[in-house]
């Protein structure tokens, strides 16, 4: 199932934790999304030590032991992977979602979102996919 593992290197110090992330693996939106979920427990600061590298620094709001900080690193890393997955799903389903929401709220989808959906389907070569999507407007609805 898992062809490769994700490795996270982090350093810990008194109430603080720092992780270095490669932006090619972890898009900024995923880093924001994951970091943001910790603002209740931590102060968070992002820095860019080198091109395409993002350092995420946490300082816990209350006292924390080394184990707490290790657990925090694990939680953040896990959340980051989840955020990447969420991002992939929402990017891939963007046009489907625009279509369904437009149709739900405005009665009909706009031509623009149909075009976008068709373009996406083309791009993903789903025309050749046995799991082809049921495109409703083709049947004249």
């Amino acid at each position: 199932m898992t062809a490769e593992n994700a490795r996270f290197t982090f350093s810990i110090d008194d109430r603080s934790l720092a992780l270095l992330l490669d932006e090619a693996l972890y898009p900024l939106d995923a880093i924001y999304g994951a970091a943001y979920l910790f603002v209740d427990r931590c102060y968070i600061f992002l820095d860019r030590p080198a091109d395409k590298q993002v350092q995420v620094r946490f300082r816990t709001k209350s006292d924390s032991t080394e184990q707490d900080l290790e657990a925090l690193a694990g939680e953040f890393a896990n959340e980051l992977l989840n955020q990447v997955l969420r991002l992939r799903i929402s990017e891939s389903t963007k046009s489907i979602r625009e279509y369904t929401l437009a149709r739900a709220f405005f009665g009909d989808s706009s031509q623009a979102s149909i075009d976008a959906l068709l373009a996406e389907l083309d791009a993903e070569e789903l025309a050749d996919d046995p799991l082809e999507i049921n495109v409703p407007w083709e049947s004249g609805t």
């Binding site: 999304g33 970091a35 943001y36 603002v39 102060y43 968070i44 992002l46 300082r59």
Partner: peptide, 12 residues
């Protein structure tokens, strides 16, 4: 630090 969290929130 709270100020920085607020900037992060706005950036997000």
């Amino acid at each position: 630090d709270s100020f920085a969290n607020h900037v992060l929130f706005e950036a997000t």
